[in-house]
Write a protein that binds this DNA or RNA. Structure first.
Length: 590
RNA sequence: GGGGGCGUAGCGAAGAUGGUUAUCGCGCCGGCCUGUCAAGCCGGAGACCGCGGGUUCAAUCCCCGUCGCUCCCGCCA
C-alpha cells in the first residue's frame, strides 16, 4: 500500500479549510473510544488536530482505529469539517474543526511508554534523559528547543546585520592547562600526544582579529572537564564574538542590541537599554555576589564601626582583625521563628560564615538575638539600616568576602521565601571593573581572574607590579536574574604588556612561549586592538524559557555526573582501539 | 573531595511507633459505551518497598554500609 503523505500539518487547519480533503501525519497523542464513535488527538510539532472515526465508518477503518495506542505514528486521510457549535474546544488552536477520517494508515507502532508524553512530564529526570527522544516529544521540550532555535536565528540575524561574519574554528586544538581542566583526545599518529577540545575559541578568535576579520562570531561548542551543575554542563554552547578597534562600550552596545532583538522577536518583550552597570566591588558589597539578582532590592549594608562599639565581643574581634560586619534587612520578618532563622543561618554557613546574628525591630527598639549588646546603639542601628518595626536584621561578621557572600546567599533565599520578585522579570546588568588578578592561597601566586589575555585598565598600567591585587581589568560580565550570562574583556595586543602579565602570574617566558608562542608571534605582526565577549546560549535560553536548569534547553544533555543515561557514555573501548592510540588503562572505574 | 534531599508496580505519589492481603492516580490487558477533548463505566494483571548486612519472634519501616539520581560547597581562566 502506498504511504499516505501529508498535505497539511496538525497545527494549521481551521475554518478556512472546511470541506477540504487532507492527509495529516503524526503521533497518537490521545484516543477516546466511545464505542461507535472514536476520537484521536493527532500530534505533530505544529499542533494537535482532532480526528473523528464516525459511526458510519467502514469496518476496515473502525478496525484500524481500534488498534491505535499512545504514540503510534499514523497517517489520516479525511475531510476537514467544523465541529458542532457546542463541541468547539476554545483551548485548542484547531478547536473549531476536526478531520473526519476516511482512511488511516499505521506508519509504525509504539511499545508501552516508560512515561506519558505530557505537557509536563513528571518522570524522574534520569528516566527522561534515558528516553530523551520521547521526552523531546513533549510540548514543553518542543517549545524550549524551538525557542533555542529562534534565539540562535536571532543571534545570526542581528550580528550579520551588524556586519559580523560567522567563522568556524577548530574543535581539536592544543591543550592549555590554564583555567578549567581540558578534555583530551589522544593522537593515533603521534604516540603520547594529545589534542584538546576547546574550553572556548578564545585564542583562535583573537588570531582572526590579527587576520583582519574585524567582527567575528560563532555559535561554538565549548568543553570543560569540571563538575556539572544546574547551569553548567561539561559541554555547552557559547555565542562567541570578538571585535577589532573597539572599547567595551562598543561591545556592550552590540550585546544590548542583540538581546533586544532576540527578546523582541521571540518573547515579544521590550528590553530597556542600556543595561545598568555595577562595579564588581559594588556588586559584592551591596548584593554579596558577582552575579547579583537585581529583580529585588534587599541591599546589604556595612555596619562594622557601629557594631564594633557595642558589647558583642565577636564583632569587636572581627573588626579589630580587619574584618567587617555586614547587615541584611529582612523586611517584615520579625515574626520568623527561631527555626526559620536557623535555616537562614545554615545557608550562611554553607558560604563559610561562622554564624548568623539577628535582632528583631519592634516599636520599642531592638529585641532578641544579639540586641542586648547594643542597647545604647539601637537607635543608630535602626537609622543606619533604615529598619522599621516588624523588620528583622541579620548580621555576619567575618572577612569581607565571607560576610558578603554568605549574606548574599541569605539575601537570595529570603527573596525567594518572601516572593520579592516576579519570576517573569528579566533584570540585566553589566558587572565591570573586576580585579585582574586573584591571589591563590594554594599556588601562592597571583592568578588571572578571567584569563591572562585581558587588558588591565589604563590607570593601572604604570603600577601593575606594585600591587597586583589592586589592578582593575577591562573585564565585564553580563548578569541576569542572578545568572552569569556572559563574560568578556578587552584583550592585550601589546606583546610587551603581555610579558609583564606573564611575569606577574609567574609564567616564565620560556613556558609562555611553549604554550602560546603562536599567539605571541602573531602579536608581533600588527595585531589590532580588540575585545570580545561570549554569552552562554544555554543559560540565555534557560532564562528565556523560565527553566531552572540548562538541561531543559539542551536536546541531549549529560546528567550532573557527566554521564549520558541514553547512550550510556562515557563507555569503555576495545583493546585494539586503545593500542592504536598507544594508551594503557592503569585503573578502571569501579 | 565534602554536605543536604530523594529512592515503594512501567510512571507519579501515599503509607505504619516494627505485626495478617502494602494504598491511590496515570499507564498496561479485557469488556461496555454515538460527541469526547486529562472522556466515562466495569473487571484484571503488575512491587524481592534501590542493594547488602545488622537488631528483632517479626523489618518496606529502626541501625550500619553501599549504589543510583538530584541540589549545593569546592572546582568551573
Amino acid at each position: 500500500m502506498e504511504r499516505m503523505k501529508r498535505t497539511a500539518t496538525c497545527g494549521e487547519l481551521n475554518r478556512n479549510h472546511l470541506a477540504e480533503k487532507v492527509t495529516i501525519n503524526g503521533w497518537v497523542h490521545r484516543h477516546r473510544d466511545h464505542g461507535n464513535i472514536k476520537f484521536i488527538n493527532l500530534r505533530d510539532r505544529y499542533g494537535i488536530t482532532q480526528v473523528v472515526i464516525d459511526a458510519d465508518a467502514t469496518p476496515v477503518l473502525k478496525n484500524t482505529a481500534s488498534e491505535l495506542k499512545f504514540e503510534y505514528c499514523i497517517a489520516v486521510q479525511g475531510e476537514v469539517r467544523s465541529r458542532p457549535d457546542n463541541m468547539v474546544n476554545p483551548s485548542m488552536q484547531t478547536g473549531e474543526i476536526e478531520v473526519k477520517a476516511e482512511k488511516i494508515q499505521i506508519l509504525s507502532t509504539c511499545a508501552a511508554l516508560p512515561f506519558m508524553i505530557d505537557e509536563r512530564t513528571e518522570a524522574r529526570e534520569d528516566l527522561r534523559l534515558q528516553y530523551r527522544y520521547l521526552d523531546l516529544r513533549s510540548f514543553s521540550m518542543q517549545k524550549n528547543i524551538r525557542l533555542r532555535h529562534e534565539v540562535a536565528l536571532g543571534v545570526r540575524e542581528y550580528l550579520i546585520g551588524r556586519g559580523f561574519m560567522e567563522i568556524e574554528t577548530p574543535t581539536l586544538i592544543r591543550s592549555t592547562p590554564e583555567g578549567a581542566r581540558d578534555f583530551l583526545v589522544p593522537s593515533r599518529l603521534y604516540s603520547g600526544k594529545f589534542y584538546a577540545l576547546p574550553q572556548s575559541p578564545q585564542l583562535y578568535k583573537q588570531l582572526l582579529m590579527v587576520s583582519g576579520f574585524d567582527k567575528y562570531f560563532q555559535i561554538a561548542h565549548c568543553f570543560r572537564d569540571e563538575d556539572a551543575r544546574g547551569d553548567r554542563q561539561i559541554e555547552h554552547t557559547q555565542i562567541d564574538l570578538e571585535m577589532s578597534f573597539v572599547s567595551k562600550e562598543d561591545i556592550f552596545e552590540v550585546i544590548e542590541g542583540m538581546l533586544q532583538h532576540i527578546f523582541r522577536k521571540t518573547l515579544n518583550k521590550e528590553l530597556k537599554v542600556p543595561f545598568p552597570r555595577l562595579s564588581y566591588d559594588q556588586a559584592m558589597d551591596r548584593y554579596g555576589s558577582d552575579k547579583p539578582d537585581l529583580r529585588f532590592d534587599l541591599e546589604i549594608k556595612e555596619l562594622s564601626s557601629l557594631l564594633a562599639q557595642g558589647d558583642f565581643q565577636l564583632f569587636k574581634d572581627v573588626v579589630a582583625a580587619g574584618g567587617v560586619v555586614k547587615a541584611l534587612l529582612a523586611p517584615g520578618c520579625s515574626g520568623l521563628s527561631r527555626k526559620e532563622i536557623s535555616r537562614l543561618e545554615e545557608t550562611a554557613k554553607i558560604f563559610k560564615a561562622k554564624g548568623l546574628a539577628w535582632m528583631k525591630v519592634t516599636e520599642g527598639g531592638l529585641e532578641g538575638g544579639i540586641s542586648r549588646f547594643y542597647g545604647d546603639l539601637s537607635e543608630a542601628i535602626i537609622t543606619e539600616t533604615g529598619a522599621a518595626a516588624g523588620d528583622l536584621l541579620l548580621f555576619v561578621g567575618d572577612t569581607r568576602k565571607t560576610a558578603c557572600t554568605s549574606l548574599g546567599a541569605v539575601r537570595n533565599e529570603l527573596a525567594a521565601k518572601l516572593k520579592l520578585y516576579d519570576e517573569k522579570d528579566f533584570n540585566f546588568a553589566w558587572i565591570i571593573d573586576f580585579p585582574l588578578f586573584e591571589w591563590s592561597e594554594e599556588e601562592k601566586r597571583w592568578e588571572p581572574t578571567h584569563h591572562m589575555f585581558s587588558m588591565p585598565q589604563e590607570q593601572c598600567l604604570d603600577t601593575l607590579e606594585e600591587d597586583p591585587g589592586r589592578v582593575k581589568g577591562d573585564l565585564y560580565d553580563l548578569v541576569c536574574n542572578g545568572v552569569e550570562l556572559a563574560s568578556g574583556s578587552i584583550r592585550i595586543h601589546d606583546p610587551e604588556l603581555q610579558k609583564r602579565i606573564f611575569n606577574i602570574i609567574g609564567l616564565s617566558l620560556e613556558e609562555a612561549g611553549r604554550r602560546f608562542g603562536f599567539l605571541l608571534e602573531a602579536f608581533k605582526h600588527g595585531p589590532p586592538p580588540h575585545g570580545g565577549i561570549a554569552p552562554g546560549l544555554d543559560r540565555l535560553v534557560m532564562l528565556m524559557a523560565g527553566e531552572s536548569t540548562i538541561r531543559e534547553v539542551i536536546t541531549f544533555p549529560k546528567n550532573t555526573l557527566g554521564l549520558s543515561p541514553m547512550d550510556d557514555c562515557p563507555s569503555s573501548v576495545g583493546r585494539e582501539q586503545l593500542e592504536e592510540l598507544h594508551l594503557k588503562i592503569t585503573k578502571s572505574a569501579p
